[in-house]
């Protein structure tokens, strides 16, 4: 069976390094990008099965903008996205439910960043099913 490919876009290199190692250990092929601009370039060549996306990077809305661009592109909108953020709880249920799996944002989940990867792994497996 081919390994599923995951692209992590996050500017926290320490978090990325450990998460990458964990996911590789879980038998995923993982590549990372430090911002959405690089992420978009890698996206074309790497062709990921799923994207893990931080929200606040160079700007407060960088992750949201990337999500919007991705989900507006008919050739890319099928790629599942995990919004991996330390503000998932702050976003509130209303806003999350407006985006999660909505018509304009299919296959999108919010996961609170945490030191262990239980929730992240659960969301990834759920989206890749």
């Amino acid at each position: 069976m081919n390994k599923s490919k995951i692209l992590i876009i996050d500017d926290d290199t320490d978090l990325v390094a450990s998460t990458k190692l964990f996911l590789q250990n879980q038998n995923f092929e993982v590549t990372s990008a430090i911002n959405t601009k690089t992420g978009f370039q890698i996206l074309k060549s790497f062709n990921p099965d799923l994207i893990i996306l931080d929200i606040i990077m160079d700007s407060n809305l960088e992750g949201f903008n990337f999500l919007n661009d991705l989900k507006s592109d008919n050739s890319l909108k099928h790629i599942p996205v995990v919004m991996y953020t330390s503000m998932a709880k702050a976003i509130g249920v209303n806003m999350r439910s407006a985006i999660e799996d909505a018509e304009n944002f299919p296959k999108t989940r919010f996961v609170e960043k945490s030191g262990d990867w239980d929730e992240l792994l659960f969301a990834i497996k759920d989206l890749l099913q």
């Binding site: 926290d12 320490d14 978090l15 964990f22 330390s86 030191g115 262990d116």
Partner: peptide
């Protein structure tokens, strides 16, 4: 602070 702690926790978890 939470951002830093999450990163440290993630590294320690490996």
């Amino acid at each position: 602070i939470k951002g830093h702690i999450t990163a440290i926790q993630s590294c320690i978890n490996t």
